[in-house]
Nucleic acid binder design. Structure first.
Lengths: 122, 122
DNA sequence: TCTCATACTTACTAAATTGTTAGTAGATTA
DNA sequence: TAATCTACTAACAATTTAGTAAGTATGAGA
């Protein structure tokens, strides 16, 4: 959790209203956020499904990532009173506005992975 | 500096060849990177100019940000043997490929800042 | 000789992020 | 009774990132 007394925090607070990039990274700049968002958008809308398609994420990180994105208004949680418990997530309208960025990130990332791995194949 | 012996590092190393988003964040996921890149592209190609348009960045962070992006092959440095020393930076072709992402990030960020600040004006 | 300029680096500190391991609730199944 | 299921949380440890303050090299000009 962040401390609200720190130059770091103050800096971000200020920059958030000044620099669009810092604002954007505030929402998607952590390791797992873009991937989780993308996967939810693709239909992996439950905790377990997300763990399956992102096998390296830990329970804690997935849970924290989801919670933060919920707080940020990017995703919505729906709890079904069933047994065993069913919980589903979906993008909010605000969250959907992030998709163009994610699309570009995804494409660039894939291209770059190809470059890197084909170099290694020499 | 990163330690090359850490789960964190290993995780990223692996994910870098697996998850496009993590790859992308590897290159632009730090606070000042997108802004510096964007500003260089806009013509603020010297240390001093960058400090002027990003007044809150410290010398250290600007220097570190530039150095990393150089190592990553995103920008190129040119040193002119003049007095006082002149150094200029420009995007490489690889770096230019990041511009579509930056463009989307910038637009989303600006829209979001507007939303946030107009709420506050109530 | 002292100060100024540019483009940095160094040493140190503080804070944020990520990861590991184990455990929880409530109901169901073996 | 014990194990299984989903969707988590808690306690703790390690690593990474960001920030502050001061200093460096080179040469020019007063």
């Amino acid at each position: 959790m962040r401390k609200i007394t720190s130059t770091n925090f103050e800096n971000e607070k200020f920059l958030e209203y000044d620099c669009p990039f810092i604002t954007t990274l505030r929402f998607i700049g952590k390791r797992w956020k873009p991937a989780v968002l993308w996967k939810i958008n693709q239909g992996y809308i439950r905790f377990k499904l997300l763990k399956q398609v992102l096998p390296l994420i830990s329970d804690k990180m997935l849970s924290a990532t989801i919670r933060e994105m919920e707080t940020d208004g990017i995703i919505q949680k729906e709890v079904f009173d069933e047994v065993p418990l069913r919980v589903e997530y979906k993008l909010t309208e605000f969250g959907k506005e992030l998709l163009p960025i994610l699309k570009e990130m995804n494409e660039w990332g894939m291209k770059t992975i190809e470059k890197i791995t084909s170099h290694n194949k020499v």
